[in-house]
């Protein structure tokens, strides 16, 4: 039986159209973050120019490491002539949080063809993980999930690399009056707030932040990792002891979200 392209329900063009739409939806939904990544990239690019590392090596790092905090530490440590084990080790400890993100993304990654998994994992960042985990709660279709993730990841990669090179080219002429550095905590904050949806996530965030601050002097930048693990443990404990109140907090958050206007990234429908 011949497949007519326009017959509703046939695979092919219509599926392609929806997946293409998912890719575009990914780019659209991450656009504000991609714009926010630009100044972060510029801050990093400026750090490269001010260091002893050649511009092209610093720029290459953005294309293949794709992790702002780790790259800033790496450039800093290379510039200080730290041993390579310390420089690379510190960058990897900072990136160890990606292991946790990949665990959270794993259920949806398992639905994707095997050949896609490694290239897609290369794009895991704070922004891709949070944006796609939120999207995955609203869409069960593996194809659309994958294309959405790719849209998000590619847009952020382009923005990060572009921001880096703008920073490298403009370098010292970027005035500190622009407060570009503030874009870094601001972006993490903009991601954090929508990810707090109930009591246990609030406890996880408070404990995570507090322990990270307390453990700030722990060598090799492991404070963040220790803080994150304590935050998750505390959140799980609080969830176990008060599932009833957490459910009511979630419904309150859901009501607040429903009342909020356009542009909301979070869909609370699952709660």
């Amino acid at each position: 039986m011949a497949n007519t392209p326009d017959t509703p329900g046939t695979p092919g063009p219509s599926t392609k159209r929806t997946t293409r739409e998912a890719f575009r939806a990914g780019i659209r939904s991450v656009l504000p973050l991609a714009i926010g990544v630009l100044p972060f990239g510029m801050v990093y690019g400026t750090a490269v120019v001010e260091s002893s590392i050649s511009n092209w090596v610093g720029g290459l790092a953005s294309s293949i490491i794709l992790a702002g905090a780790a790259q800033l530490a790496l450039v800093d440590l290379i510039d200080d002539n730290a041993p390579w084990t310390v420089a690379v080790g510190t960058a990897l400890v900072i990136n160890a949080r990606f292991l946790m993100y990949s665990a959270a993304l794993m259920p949806s990654f398992s639905e994707y063809p095997r050949r896609w998994r490694i290239p897609m994992a290369m794009l895991i960042t704070d922004q891709t993980a949070v944006t796609s985990l939120l999207y995955n709660e609203t869409d069960d279709d593996p194809n659309r999930r994958r294309l959405f993730y790719l849209g998000v990841g590619v847009a952020l990669w382009v923005s990060w690399v572009a921001g880096t090179w703008i920073g490298i080219v403009l370098g010292a002429s970027l005035s500190s009056g622009f407060q570009l550095e503030f874009a870094v905590p601001l972006m993490f904050l903009a991601l954090l707030v929508p990810s707090i949806r109930d009591r246990s996530s609030l406890v996880a965030a408070i404990v995570g932040a507090a322990v990270t601050l307390i453990a700030r002097d722990v060598p090799f930048n492991t404070g963040l990792l220790i803080g994150a693990m304590c935050g998750i443990a505390a959140g799980m404990l609080s969830g176990a002891t008060s599932s009833a109140s957490s459910a009511s907090a979630a419904s309150a958050a859901s009501a607040a979200s429903a009342a909020s206007g356009e542009g909301a990234v979070v869909d609370e429908s699952e709660q």
């Binding site: 259920p107 707090i196 996530s201 995570g208 959140g235």
Partner: peptide
């Protein structure tokens, strides 16, 4: 149980990053 823990990865990591980059 693990699924619940994984849902808490983003808030705890991001809160730590905010604390580190904003306050320190």
């Amino acid at each position: 149980r693990i699924g619940r823990g994984l849902r808490l990865v983003a808030p705890s990591v991001l809160a730590g990053l905010v604390a580190q980059t904003l306050l320190i």
